[in-house]
Design a protein around this nucleic acid. Structure first.
Lengths: 342, 342
DNA sequence: ACCTGGCACTCACAGTTGACGAGTGCCAGT
DNA sequence: ACTGGCACTCGTCAACTGTGAGTGCCAGGT
């Protein structure tokens, strides 16, 4: 069932007006605000068809029309052109990100920037450990039977764990362990480390074996197996803006969902390896029940052409899709470049 | 103006009932639910006096009475006894905190635990760098002109910064630098490091001076001067629970205030060095304008008898003060013990 | 085949009214 | 010093009404 040119134009007009005004839009208002060269009655007929097809609906008789999730989907896929960022926005991105001192700082600034630019809730996943490679492993003696294991990845993440040694190990021995471990693991992607770590333990002479076993179990258990994904969140206050209309008043379930890191990861964690793709999930399409009244725009980011993490924003289905998509994409690209510089 | 015994009892009853039911409480309900051996009319007289003194007020004529901020203050200071935690709660604390792998994990678990137990918004400050001491400084060569500076503190915080060297430095030299720095700074409280760092630079022979200058400036600028306080937040969904009644509907300003780390630090950042003191800020007493309709219960925590950071919860002025105070105190003590073990 | 003006119809919304009841303050009596 | 009684206030709720926006449909025009 193909919709003719004008009906599509009507749908676009409805989406744009509704997003802007937040009020159901009627046939008269439509012909007035857009240059549709026909009468309201004609538009009404088109609207009736659009409603039959499920693209728009009436909140109640004698109200204007509102886009359905399906309508937004068609709009996003076929009717919208991506808005280029304004120079002011470009400058905002650079100014905001300048002077970040470490990865934590980068992630925090990014998430706040996104929230501010889109005026929505922003989510940024830290570079995934699973997709990072080891840059360096450091062993720092804390006492004779305790080591601090510090792992630095190529994406700038630094993780540290305390290792309890079964028996005292002298400093010189620690140095040798460090060297051995680094020789084996340097540059290896975390997901590929398990067999190498195992080999390290197996090949070690008896003297070192106990210590290496302790270290390797900490390494494998808390850094490799437990996919320790971290998340930063900002802009929840933006949810409260149109809460009454957008979420019929109850922010609670949404705020609750946002506190579950697992949920957030599902939303923006990129299964998509290509960071140049931006995904849009509209209302219903969302798997998480409590977020059925929201839309999510997300993408991956990374120093090269493969994503190491995801980021995105979440807002009411009634959102400015073209603008949001452009902003999320631009910020992700910028962060990717920033990461590439280290 | 001293209030006699019964009037205080009436105030306590009003606070308790109002906190429980969230509805203005009238004289009849009061005599029915509490064993005040007098008639409603008598209570009404007492109430009139309590109202004159500013401890309670009427939302409108012909409604019951509601405590004022001043009334809550009197209640907290004089009328409430601290509820001991239930065994279930004690067990919850232990179960929840067990198996934390690093400081990040401890802080995250703590803040979620607090939010869950009190059913309010919880805030936890990371151990303040300013109050921590250096346990170890590590220099990790990334390339010949780049070092990763990793600082580990006695409170378990690990911070890392990239240092750009003006000229290449060989690995052996890096080892000597590391040793020199650690000898000088090990165990020193961060606040006391600047003169020592300066001395290090001054005493260094010319060969090392350039590298040391680079390192010291990163150290001083981003770790010592910039009081890099970090904060974890959880339980914002709890705000939405009674939002309509407690905050006349607008969560927005509160959520906004909670996104400002500076604001949160003011709230719970302990100026109080003694972690056994629990502070309560009620409504008006709060400095931050947008949080005038909330109360904050906070305390310091630390491995010993001085606080290294603060934690607390924020909720509507109508909150269960005795329970909240007890919970915050218990969690803070538990975390303190946990930190002492490292 | 498509568009248009006209018209009857629907229905949310806002404002009004009145009954109800919770709660008070006051006073006279014990 | 407390109590019962009583008049009074005022918010809440439900029922009712008028208004206007917006629709669907139809008959007529191009």
């Amino acid at each position: 069932m193909a919709l003719d040119e004008r009906k599509l134009e009507v749908l676009r007009a409805i989406v744009e007006d509704y997003v802007a005004t937040q009020e159901p839009v009627g046939s008269r208002a439509l012909v007035e605000r857009h240059q549709l060269q026909v009468s309201p009655a004609t538009i009404r007929n088109d609207m009736a068809i659009l409603e039959d097809e499920g693209y728009i609906r009436q909140p109640h008789t004698s109200a204007g029309r509102v886009p359905t999730d399906r309508g937004y989907r068609l709009f996003v896929d076929k009717l919208s052109t991506i808005k280029p960022l304004s120079p002011a926005e470009r400058r905002a991105i650079e100014r905001f990100m300048l002077g970040a001192v470490d990865l934590d700082d980068v992630v925090h600034r990014t998430v706040r920037l996104l929230a501010q630019l889109t005026r929505q809730v922003a989510v940024v996943q830290y570079p995934s450990l699973a997709r990072s490679a080891v840059r360096h492993l450091e062993l720092i003696p804390i006492s004779t039977t305790r080591l601090m294991l510090v792992m630095i990845t190529d994406t700038g993440r630094v993780e540290q764990r305390l290792v309890e040694l079964p028996s005292p190990v002298p400093d010189t021995e620690v140095n040798q362990l460090r060297q051995a471990i680094n020789e084996k693991l340097d540059g290896v992607r975390l997901a590929d480390t398990p067999p190498l770590v195992q080999a390290l333990v197996d090949e070690a002479d008896v003297r070192r074996r106990a210590a290496l076993t302790a270290i390797s179990s900490v390494l494998l258990e808390t850094l490799v197996e437990r996919t320790d994904e971290r998340i930063a969140l900002a802009g929840t206050a933006n949810l409260a803006r149109g809460a009454l209309l957008d979420f019929h008043g109850s922010l609670r379930p949404i705020l609750e969902a946002l506190e579950e890191e697992v949920v957030l990861l599902k939303l923006i964690g990129s299964t998509e390896p290509d960071p140049s793709v931006t995904r849009v999930l509209i209302g219903d399409e969302n798997e998480i029940e409590h977020l059925r009244s929201t839309s999510v725009v997300s993408t991956g980011y990374g120093p090269g052409s493969t994503a190491v993490g995801g980021m995105g924003v979440l807002g009411p289905t009634r959102m400015d899709y073209p603008g949001t998509i452009a902003t999320v994409g631009a910020v992700a690209r910028y962060v990717g470049e920033l990461l590439a510089q280290n």
